[in-house]
């Protein structure tokens, strides 16, 4: 067999939440028997954005904040691929926030993992969009991406995991990958993944994480209920986790693609298409 990409050792500090994300992701991919050749992991910039280096599949490292357009391009070119975009909260909610909103609106069938830790760890601990007031001089309230995702009317899969709960996280990632691979749309999974060096929130998050999956009366099928329950929990100082919302809305590929053959693998030869091209020539007369 061809020797291909050598897996790099993670760059993360011992105890970093991202190890838990990597482990869960590997487990989810393995349990779903998804082949490395059919998997593309798109990394952002920052500690979390190096996760593609630690996986044995196709990986592309995008620019800071631009992983969602990159991943969308990959998926449109070949919708048969499992496309996983993975980055941090600075990458996704600050410099790439515009793409975050529009990716949800476009609804490409990709999995978007945000490793949320309230800080810019790689640059040594500046407050990120999810930082709480008081952290490193931050005076702004934290951005809640789950609430934002709920407010966009065609989101189809919203979940939040915690690296402190591996079983739940693996389950959420599996569901997200299955959702995307069924071309049902954008699977957003925010993961609370503490930065042990600059913002060690393990203790707080263990107390704050509230598992909605365990609440028997909660239904992830209702956007209104999800919005209401999450608002309540947030107001009470809790962070809702679990499968928060699932809905139905046509995905970008379903809306856009016209050919069963992935664009990347089509027969582009001139002779194959010549009669149709000659027809187009008439548009110039």
């Amino acid at each position: 067999m061809t020797k291909t990409v050598p897996i790099s050792t993670p760059i993360w500090c011992p105890g970093c939440g991202d190890f838990g994300v990597l482990a869960s992701l590997k487990k989810a991919l393995a349990e779903l028997s998804i082949k490395p050749k059919d998997t593309v992991v798109v990394g952002g910039i920052g500690c979390s954005g190096s996760i593609h280096n630690n996986l044995e599949c196709y990986g592309i490292h995008s620019l800071h904040g631009r992983l969602l357009p990159t991943a969308t391009g990959v998926k449109l070119a070949n919708p048969n691929l499992t496309v996983i975009a993975a980055g941090g909260d600075g990458d996704g909610y600050a410099i790439g926030a515009g793409h975050f909103i529009h990716a949800m609106k476009k609804n490409p069938s990709i999995v978007y993992i945000v490793m949320q830790n309230g800080t810019y760890g790689l640059t040594k601990g500046q407050p990120s969009p999810t930082a709480v007031p008081g952290y490193e001089g931050n005076v702004e309230p934290p951005f809640d991406a789950v609430m934002t995702a709920l407010s966009i009317q065609n989101t189809t899969f919203i979940a939040r995991g915690f690296t402190g709960n591996q079983a739940q996280l693996t389950g959420l990632l599996k569901k997200g990958i299955e959702h995307a691979n069924a071309l049902r749309g954008f699977a957003f999974v925010e993961i609370l993944s503490p930065c042990v060096t600059y913002n060690d929130t393990y203790k707080e998050w263990r107390e704050q994480a509230y598992n909605l999956d365990a609440e028997s009366s909660y239904s992830s099928k209702s956007r209104v209920a999800a919005f209401s329950r999450c608002s309540e929990l947030l107001a009470g100082g809790k962070i809702p986790t679990g499968l928060i919302f699932t809905g139905e809305s046509k995905s970008l590929e379903t809306n856009t693609l016209t050919s069963p053959a992935p664009m990347a693998l089509q027969d582009l030869r001139l002779e194959t298409n010549l009669p149709k091209y000659e027809e187009l020539l008439k548009d110039f007369r």
Partner: peptide, 18 residues
Amino acid sequence: EDELAVINMGIGAAYAGA
């Protein structure tokens, strides 16, 4: 949504073979 998305979506699709 903007030209940042345009070029990066293009890069993603080109990388994937289009």
